[in-house]
Design a protein around this nucleic acid. Structure first.
Lengths: 232, 232
DNA sequence: AATCGTAGGATTGTCAACAATCTGATCGAC
DNA sequence: GTCGATCAGATTGTTGACAATCCTACGATT
């Protein structure tokens, strides 16, 4: 790790880089990750790498077997995805309800920063950055709610949804969706002060099919709820 | 770590012991945990302790601040508890639906073992053991479903519910609830082969301590069910 | 007397080496 | 020819020491 911001600790940095490599598809599912090799490639010792692997294992991107190292987890099946997206929606709308009456100028300023980064990412066709900002936006809702437990559950769910989001965007090489416009409109509704409408809009936002619902639904998977693409 | 089973790795053992200490109340909320002190008390090096702390942080029992170590997390507020219990219920009933038609003699034999341990724990007024077996029973449902992602989300939720369960039983010194009878009856219903009735029974079994709270959206429409005690 | 700066101690972050365990590949027996 | 045991190599699990950072208490200054 030659020259990187030193403020966040090697564990976090390694975890971030590995997460990005896995989600972008550069690390294939079932691939085994060797601690020593990773440590060498990052130019660090095995200690921080081990801790990062523990973390990513808990995030669901890796699976560990004692004395046998870790492997990249298989992608989340669509049936599970369809099942957990509504849970995510429930959590986020709940968080929004909690914070809505306290929203102030600073909140909207923070969202504006995120929206700016999102717009730039969309322009540059940077899927990685777009996904990150998308998640950052929704995460900010949860963080603002000040409920660490809610955030933890949300994170566990989103880690699964994120992988699917990446996967879809990686297979299809066409232009990244302009998620920025959607989110900006969402913020505008929040700004209007209409709580009910805002919750409704967020609910629709998370469920929105965005035109490209996966028509490749697996044969045996009967979707218990409406089709949707989850993220963004 | 003087004489313990050596098969599971120090990290898991340390994590288990710390979890038990935290949940039982022996470690007060906001208490700071020092790596070196823990390592000394367990008789191991700091490496495994660090990894265990990373794990418990992800489980929500600890909160970490860079360069400042970890502190025991504050207990989960009742409002959050009331919100996440229905989510847990949704996940478990979904898992039961998935596996129901595949249940075989071996599954029931495994449950019988758990029920035996649970009965013994109840007899001996061993809250710790009773909770563990209770959770083990429900976890087996998720593990049997063969969906690691579902299990991960469930674990995140249950970690929060568990702390509350422990807390309640620690404050009230009266006899532990006879959770064993409840679970045995549940298994009997499963054995009858009536899927609908089984799902309904499980749904009733998992109810928030303060009556049913918010509706969670996921798949099957939810119907009101009678109140019941918290976990178990 | 109150506040700021500073030094000491304690704690976390990181590293390189040792010990235990597993994988797989070769070799021999049936 | 197939199956099982054995052994080398690689990989993980663990350790103790070093470096960086932070918290606390003390003292100087206004």
């Amino acid at each position: 790790m030659t020259t990187l911001e030193i403020v966040r600790g090697l564990r976090s940095q390694i975890a971030d880089r590995l997460r990005e490599e896995i989600l972008s598809g550069r690390r294939a599912p079932e691939e085994r990750l060797c601690e020593a090799a990773l440590a060498r490639s990052f130019g660090v010792s095995r200690g921080p790498v081990r801790e990062a692997l523990v973390q990513l294992t808990h995030e669901g991107l890796l699976v560990a077997k004692p004395h046998c190292g870790v492997r990249v987890a298989a992608p989340v099946p669509d049936s599970i995805l369809a099942f957990i997206v509504p849970i995510r929606r429930t959590i986020e709308t709940h968080a929004l309800s909690l914070i809505f009456d306290d929203l102030n100028a600073e909140d909207f300023r923070a969202w504006d920063v995120i929206l700016g980064r999102m717009a730039r990412a969309c322009e540059q066709r940077d899927v990685a950055a777009a996904v990150e900002q998308d998640i950052a936006f929704h995460r900010s809702l949860l963080e603002r709610a000040g409920q660490p437990d809610l955030l933890a559950i949300w994170s566990t769910i989103v880690a699964r949804i994120r992988s699917h989001f990446w996967q879809v965007h990686h297979l299809r090489r066409d232009a990244p969706i302009d998620v920025q416009a959607d989110h900006r409109q969402l913020v505008l509704i929040f700004q209007s002060g209409d709580k009910k409408a805002s919750v409704r809009a967020l609910k629709a936002h998370i469920a929105s099919a965005r035109g490209d619902a996966p028509k490749v639904a697996p044969p045996e998977a009967q979707r218990p709820c409406e089709n949707n693409r989850g993220m963004s």
